[in-house]
Design a protein around this nucleic acid. Structure first.
Lengths: 143, 143
DNA sequence: TATGTCGGTTACCTCTTGTAACCATCAGCA
DNA sequence: TGCTGATGGTTACAAGAGGTAACCGACATA
């Protein structure tokens, strides 16, 4: 567990071209990369963001998350459940009722996810402008 | 620009089953969703995390980001450049030298990305345990 | 002359996603 | 006694994203 991989994410210093830029150890297929792929997933993000301070049923999530297919929502929820981020509660009634909610672990992640969504909302205009500028620059080049 | 989409991410209240759970407006294909897909992308995350307080050359990034193909790194960097998150500086020498760095906008995103990576590093063991628990539960069910 | 470096691009093939159909269970309705 | 609808999925198959590998120019080195 203490194999020295907890390097700082940022070190200044280092003057020239040939130094070791490796800041943290994220080999392909390693634990951290696998988890990053999960939590930084398109649908996972939206699910976690939505489950903030409420639990939702499958169909409610499906309605809220515009564009998600039944299959991908199902797959995403099962992955999140497996990772201990979302809890699944089945009520044995008919028609079936299944509630999804964040676990305590999921709630700690929610803070970060929310800040990502907030960042996006806050800076969408800047990005739109950057895109427009880039595209018109490219057009000029081609012409 | 002020079309009333800046709803709160969380509201308590609401008592029953049939209320409107919509918390923010993220239609498929809308600006926010497009940007989220970009910044929450597997390779984008790693690029932004790596470019913290240093600029890196194409080949350095390629070496650092284990598993990325030349094509995907190229595609990712061009997208990030288009979005105004990463700057690209070409030095007209031979062999060519191209430096990539975060723009001021990219640096504001870096804070959030870093917290996502940090969260992942911090909680990887809990997640590994949750996965193991889930898998053994499933095995029991099947047997 | 042959090889290597650097920063890509292009063609191709694979694997993840998305689409659509299907399933069981019961409630309400005619 | 069917018929329809809601719910929470699963399965087979098609489409699109992503990965693989070869190639490129311009020079430096051997």
């Amino acid at each position: 567990m203490e194999d020295g991989t907890s390097k700082s994410l940022c070190y200044p210093g280092s003057t020239d071209d040939d130094y070791d830029v490796r800041q943290w150890d994220v080999r392909e297929g390693c634990e951290v990369r696998q988890i990053l792929d999960r939590v930084a997933d398109k649908w996972s993000l939206l699910v976690i963001a939505l489950l903030d301070c409420q639990s939702l049923r499958f169909t409610q999530l499906r309605r809220e998350i515009d564009g998600v297919s039944q299959r991908m929502l199902s797959v995403t929820l099962r992955q999140l459940e497996r990772d201990g981020l979302v809890s699944r509660t089945v009520h044995p009634v008919v028609p079936p009722r299944v509630d999804y909610a964040l676990t305590p672990l999921g709630r700690t992640l929610h803070e970060t996810i929310k800040s990502l969504v907030t960042w996006t909302e806050k800076h969408q205009q800047e990005i739109a402008e950057a895109r427009a500028a880039y595209d018109s620059r490219r057009e000029m080049m081609e012409a």
